[in-house]
Amino acid sequence: MAEKKPVYICRCQEVTREEIRKAIADGARTIKGVKNRTHATMGLCQGRTCRRLIEKMLAEATDIKELKPGTRPPVRTIKIEEVVKGDDA
């Protein structure tokens, strides 16, 4: 029952719509549940594009009205050296 042409939802980790549907069928009810099962949102962009698409899929597939925000800092990629120097610089 593979989709004829895979639709990529998370481009960084190359996760397809079908894989996310499967994760939801397996019991995922949150972004974290989808993440743990598929690695979606865990790439370089940290879900900037796909998170809203996955949230929409979760909302459609379940009776969840509102998802708790699942994002935490850092909000963008940052070089380790910059963090270490940080306020001391």
């Binding site: 800092p73 850092p74 050296e81």
Partner: peptide
């Protein structure tokens, strides 16, 4: 030091 962090 030269590596980037993406998440925590």
């Amino acid at each position: 030091k030269g590596m980037n962090i993406i998440r925590m």
